[in-house]
Design a protein around this nucleic acid. Structure first.
Lengths: 337, 337
DNA sequence: ATAAATACCTGAAACGTTTCAGCATGTAAA
DNA sequence: TTTACATGCTGAAACGTTTCAGGTATTTAT
């Protein structure tokens, strides 16, 4: 079984045209459904020949000719832990759902999804070489977007990016609102001593945990509460470690910057003998499938992934330069708070 | 911002050739690194021009000409729940990890991953139209593989398929062994009344849960134990429902056909007041990230996803027709058993 | 000195589409 | 009767690569 297919030659549009007794231009028109260009009897004849010969279009050739590849890229930064080279399970479940929802949206218009999850330095090449019609970039990139992307007029949607960009489009959740939702809920539940557990909150001003923290913090301010900050790396283990600090601080309501962290936090709290939610109420963030599987099931902020993905695809199709779509988050009440 | 890029014309291999004062054939040779065909000074000059002009290869054109697209497809059946049209969170985490591991393996050889997770009827078109160099099909397909795939000599690896196929390749875990591993472990832990909780065990002879059950069953036979069967749909809720039956049957050791189901089962057991693992020991299957996040963390069978993905990619590159790779599973001991 | 081999390079034909200008033919308007 | 326009179709030129069959020099073997 050779690596290169030596299979019988492909049936091309020429073969179909010859057999149907028309020109290739006509076949192309039929395939594209340009009814006004072809009489119905001819179209029907062509369609029958296509069927008979088992003709399948070569999208590669079509792409070369039309300059539309029908390929949309998803560039996923941070899927792999740079140290272990293993996919990071803390991030995975989100990315998985993202990918499948995206694929589903693209399907509807006949586009195909290509994944890039490699080194950050090479994604630009990926974008250009493959002649993608557009791409969605998820995750925090270290460097600025290279200007070559503007010159080549690549349609790029930045997913969850909070850095303003003149030429590219963006989709994001209203994270300030999300943080506020969580804080207000805990306050409504009569929690007095609130804490926020999250990673790298101070490191990057436009970091997602940082914005969530700010949202929660402002909500606390408005109702005269204080919001303590426990900084830990956003991960299960980080959450678990944070449990000690949370107990030391005597917090009775905690907002975790991600579900995965909330899960770790709850584990840590339980290991230390605290009851959730009776002693400490915990609100997560993201509403990953995971949120339903831990016990107690997580009360969490749903970031609106379906809407965000849909918005991203819409922008890809006919967004304007610099356009931004902001999705409203929602509170999902389960049992952890 | 137009949908079709009206950007400045692409820099082509012709432009590079002209500027460097050589033929396009030479440029192509340089780009391909065929050192024996080009003198070093010439090659260097070409490389410099490439750099200067910001030339980027058009892989579309390359694919058309060379008949190698550098595209590998992942065909994922069952990602979407046919009723809700939502991605099935019970299956997602596995698929997510699969996709990222696969992408990573392909990266290493410069190939790009395309995802197809649409309707089962259309995956064949996807395979042919896009001129994929190969594809991996995951999940149970209802119909036989169409013969057109053989005629067109599509390189296809069936992932987790237990149906023999003359022309296509397969990768799978030794699920019989996996089931046995789980059963033997419970027996070694002095559990007397074993049960297997799984979905559709009797429906399809080549269904994965069915094989896992068989493996466990045989291991029980060999040591004079009986293995009760509790059939429930493989899902969190299915596991939860199964808890009642498990308690009725007075089983003290249970094998779940998937981690997600084990998670539900544990929740159900705990809700009914039973202690895991003291009253009932639970062994899961798959070792999803999830396994570490539930409490108690799952003792489970690792199906060897990294090895399987690697094997699949190897087969894609130089497997023989009908070749099968079987990966050995491993027991991961945590706290649920 | 001639023949053979080698090193380096080129011209041109694919690959399979899309699309545009143009060409008949028939029909409606002037 | 001429002009204009619509309809249905075609020829041929792109699109940007790869690759193969040569074609010069230059070197080596005879």
């Amino acid at each position: 079984m050779p690596l290169l297919s030596k299979a019988s030659k492909q049936v091309t549009i020429h073969d179909v045209a010859r057999r149907a007794g028309v020109s290739i231009a006509t076949v192309s028109n039929v395939l594209k459904g340009r009814a006004s260009e072809v009489s119905e009897p001819t179209a029907e004849r062509v369609r029958r020949v296509v069927e008979q010969m088992g003709y399948v279009k070569n999208l590669n050739a079509a792409a070369l000719s039309s300059r539309r590849s029908g390929l949309i890229g998803a560039i996923l930064i941070g899927v792999f832990d740079p140290y272990s080279k293993e996919p990071d399970p803390e991030i995975n479940p989100f990315y998985g759902e993202f990918v499948f929802r995206l694929e589903n949206e693209l399907q509807a218009h006949g586009d195909t999804l290509c994944i890039y999850a490699g080194r950050e330095e090479a994604y630009v090449n990926f974008l250009l070489e493959r002649n993608l019609d557009g791409a969605i970039l998820v995750g925090v990139i270290a460097k600025d977007l290279p200007t070559v992307l503007e010159r080549r007029d690549v349609r790029l949607v930045l997913f969850d990016s909070f850095v303003h960009h003149r030429t590219h489009m963006r989709v994001q959740t209203d994270e300030l609102k999300g943080g506020a939702l969580a804080a207000d809920f805990l306050i409504a539940r009569k929690r007095k001593h609130l804490a926020f557990v999250g990673g790298a909150v101070r490191d990057f001003p436009s970091n997602i945990p940082a914005i969530r923290f700010q949202g929660a913090s402002r909500a606390c301010d408005q109702s005269g509460h204080r919001l303590l900050l426990v900084e830990e790396w956003t991960s299960f283990e980080g959450g678990r470690r944070a449990a000690h600090r949370v107990l030391e601080l005597k917090a009775d309501g905690v907002i975790a910057s991600a579900d995965i962290m909330a899960a770790g936090l709850i584990r840590g709290l339980q290991e230390a003998g605290a009851k959730v939610p009776d002693d400490v109420a915990v609100v997560g963030y993201d509403d990953l499938p995971l949120a339903r599987y831990v016990s107690p099931p997580l009360t969490t902020i749903r970031q609106g992934l379906p809407e965000k993905v849909r918005a991203a695809v819409e922008l890809l199709r006919d967004g304007e330069k610099g356009e931004v779509r902001v999705i409203k988050p929602h509170l999902v009440v389960r049992e952890s708070a």
